[in-house]
Design a protein around this nucleic acid. Structure first.
Length: 338
DNA sequence: AAAAGACTCAACCGCGGAGAC
DNA sequence: CGTCTCCGCGGTTGAGTCTTT
């Protein structure tokens, strides 16, 4: 319900009293604003408000236009890609909402800010983690972002084998995401028991390894890669189609020698040396096992996982614990709630 | 079905920077 | 320089809606 306030304009010779409306905009006001901007363009908001016959402040007009009426504004929930980008950019720039919004076409700073406060900070509250703290940033990087990626992969795998391709095309800025923003995940994370099962998680930049994947590691971030760390240096990683199909429904699990995946509710273990692509070729053996760079040209095939400068390593699903030693991984970052 | 609590998001507020005078 | 106005940003509010009890 709109209210009307009386504003006394001090400085005016006759102390003109202007009635200014506040609160929700009416259709009529929207129409006035849209038509005025269509004719005269935006900007000079105070003058615009008067000229358009709107009893609103220039600020209010600007906000209404930029956050709601502007034609190119996108409606609907943020996609996982957009959420990932927000997390990434927020880790870089903090609460610079307008700057972040510039990288999400059609999304407003207000929308992003609301998303952050209502979704992201809510998760932090539930975990008794101070949002913005190092620990919270770690959790975002090590759990939320990987799971967004996983979700993106799953949805992409079911629609198209070109994992991440569309994401990169739609978000060229994402290709400049730095691995450093997804680094050093373990500093404030409690030590974890040895993971009984490993999922593929994006983590750790080149030459930096955390203790998240190995019970043998200490807190030194620069310890050498543990035997169960697996790192992809290449940006192009071909996934055989049967694995891509498996990945569309449940996580694929890697270790040094094998890939584990779900097939009709049976856990399949396949040695990398036996994994073949659609042409019957094995491109994965030694290179994959050693976590070495793979030649993209040799991987020309049918299915690609185009990973935007992210590195991966295996890690346990229970390595991150909250203050009560509950497994955050089980309870947090429920992507459906995002 | 109703009340209470939780959540969402459009809109407002205060502040600071930029530019004009 | 100092003052004023405009603009844009980030923080906050609160009405409406949804969910839970």
């Amino acid at each position: 319900m709109s209210t009307i306030i009386a504003k006394r304009e001090v400085g005016s010779s006759n102390e003109e009293e202007t009635d200014l409306r506040r609160g929700p905009w009416t259709l009529e006001e929207d129409s006035l604003l849209i038509h005025y901007i269509a004719r005269h363009g935006e900007g000079r908001w105070n003058m615009l408000a008067k000229s358009a016959g709107l009893k609103r402040t220039g600020k209010s007009c600007r906000l209404r236009w930029l956050n709601y009426l502007k034609p190119d504004i996108k409606r609907g929930n943020l996609t996982p890609q957009e959420q990932l980008l927000i997390l990434e950019l927020h880790s870089k720039w903090g609460n610079r909402w307008s700057k972040i919004a510039q990288h999400l076409p059609g999304r407003t700073d207000n929308e992003i800010k609301n998303y952050w406060r209502t979704r992201v900070q809510k998760q932090a509250r539930q975990l008794n983690i101070e949002s913005g703290s190092k620990r919270f940033i770690d959790a975002v990087k090590c759990f939320w972002m990987p799971r967004l990626l996983q979700k993106m992969e799953q949805s992409s795998a079911s629609n198209s084998p070109m994992i991440m391709k569309n994401f990169n095309n739609n978000h060229p800025e994402a290709s400049s995401m730095s691995t450093s923003s997804i680094s050093n995940c373990s500093n404030n994370i409690p030590n974890s028991p040895s993971p009984p099962q490993r999922e593929l998680f994006m983590d750790v930049p080149n030459n930096q390894f955390s203790n998240m994947s190995s019970p043998n590691n200490n807190n030194n971030n620069n310890v050498p890669p543990s035997s169960d760390s697996l790192q992809f240096s290449s940006q192009i990683f071909e996934m055989p189609q049967h694995l891509a199909a498996a990945a569309s429904s449940s996580p694929i699990v890697f270790d040094n020698n094998n890939v584990y995946y779900n097939n009709n509710n049976a856990m399949i273990q396949e040695n990398w040396n036996n994994v073949v692509d659609a042409n019957g070729n094995n491109n994965y053996g030694g290179a994959m096992m050693e976590g070495l760079s793979m030649d993209p040209l040799s991987l020309m095939g049918t299915t690609y996982y185009d990973i935007p400068q992210f590195d991966f390593q295996t890690c346990g699903s229970d390595w991150i614990l909250d203050d009560n030693n509950n497994n955050m991984g089980d309870t947090l970052w429920n992507m459906d709630s995002m």
